[in-house]
């Protein structure tokens, strides 16, 4: 059993997260957004199987990349970062609000589904992570205690069977990733995000596209210094958890952006070509932001769901992340 990790960085988790999560995302929003356009397959299929006219939540919606997946449903996205929310609001079929995952402004029991992708792991104590899951589950339509524990998604998403939440968190066990974390490593880590250019200049992701995210092995150990990050810049420029091919780094930013020309248009990033980088580079300023993460161990997410009063319908591991599909049970 893990120790309450609060002792690592108290006194006040709210203040800690404000500095090491909220402030960082606000600063890197445009830049971060330009790297986030590729939906994860599991999330995509979860959204696509929702019946026509379903109403759901995307808690921690970031730039709103999941808002475009299924035009036949209505998603109310929320994010703690006003800058990211503004980017997400461009998807005008849906709506977005600025809100804290622990203080969601939604009535209980009204929603058909919820997703929360790469969000809960930014909360810095076990109790806050459980609270966040409970807050999401409370918004769902409750399900009776009747359905079986089948792992089959299709069977489980019938109208009237209660709402379902899909939750993704970053895994501790990711030996194959470039970060190489694994069982036994420190679970509470700081992960750097390196930007070039003026952090606030590019809310839509332009002028800030040459960026890199450096890996580190553990907090306080082997944190990649600036020169190392510059050296490996392009190779490390992808997102951590949305990295779909972690063993095959793309050679350039352009390669990375090619899979989704739609996203490039939407976020205003120039369509390929290395030219925008070339001239700006000399004038760019490198800045490193440290984001806090709690890396989930095998079984920990399911445990948190149960502690939050939910029931795990299905769970699994995908690309360095643990996920669960959970329902809220009213006995």
């Amino acid at each position: 059993m893990e120790l309450p990790e609060a002792s690592l960085h108290l006194p006040i988790p709210e203040a800690y997260e404000a500095e090491h999560v909220h402030h960082v995302y606000e600063q890197i929003a445009g830049h971060f957004s330009s790297t986030r356009y590729k939906p994860w397959p599991m999330v995509e299929s979860f959204l696509k199987m929702q019946p026509d006219g379903s109403v759901g939540l995307d808690v921690g919606c970031g730039n709103g990349k999941y808002l475009t997946v299924n035009p036949k449903i209505f998603i109310l996205g929320s994010d703690r970062s006003p800058a990211l929310t503004k980017i997400a609001s461009q998807h005008d079929h849906h709506s977005v609000v600025v809100a804290d995952a622990l203080l969601l402004p939604h009535p209980h029991s009204r929603f058909d589904f919820a997703i929360s992708v790469a969000v809960i792991h930014h909360l810095s104590t076990a109790s806050r992570r459980v609270m966040a899951i409970k807050t999401i589950l409370d918004a769902l339509k409750p399900s009776g205690n009747t359905s079986g524990m089948h792992g089959c998604l299709e069977k489980e998403t019938k109208p009237g069977s209660g709402g379902r939440a899909l939750i993704y968190v970053w895994a501790l066990e990711q030996r194959g990733s470039r970060r190489g974390w694994d069982e036994g490593c420190e679970q509470d880590v700081m992960v750097p995000w390196v930007t070039k250019g003026e952090p606030n200049s590019a809310i839509h992701g332009t002028g800030n596209k040459s960026r890199k995210e450096t890996g580190l092995k553990r907090r306080g150990k082997r944190y990649a210094p600036k020169d190392a990050s510059q050296r490996t810049g392009r190779e490390d420029s992808r997102s951590e958890s949305e990295d779909m091919k972690s063993t095959v780094p793309p050679s350039t930013d352009r390669t990375e952006q090619e899979p989704s020309t739609e996203a490039i248009r939407e976020f205003g990033t120039p369509k390929g070509g290395p030219s925008p980088d070339g001239r700006e580079k000399s004038a760019e300023v490198t800045k490193t932001f440290q984001r806090y993460y709690h890396l989930y161990r095998s079984g920990e997410l399911e445990r948190d769901v149960v502690m939050a009063g939910g029931r795990v319908v299905d769970s699994g591991y995908e690309r360095d992340n643990w996920w669960v599909i959970a329902t809220r049970v009213i006995e």
């Binding site: 709210e14 929320s78 703690r80 006003p82 929310t85 503004k86 609001s89 977005v96 609000v97 600025v98 809100a99 804290d100 622990l102 203080l103 969601l104 402004p105 109790s127 806050r128 609270m131």
Partner: peptide, 19 residues
């Protein structure tokens, strides 16, 4: 700009005791 902001000032937004 069409986006409501639900972040609360500290005195209203403290975590519930049940935590």
């Amino acid at each position: 700009e069409g986006i409501p902001n639900f972040l609360l000032p500290n005195h209203l937004g403290s975590a519930p005791k049940s935590e």
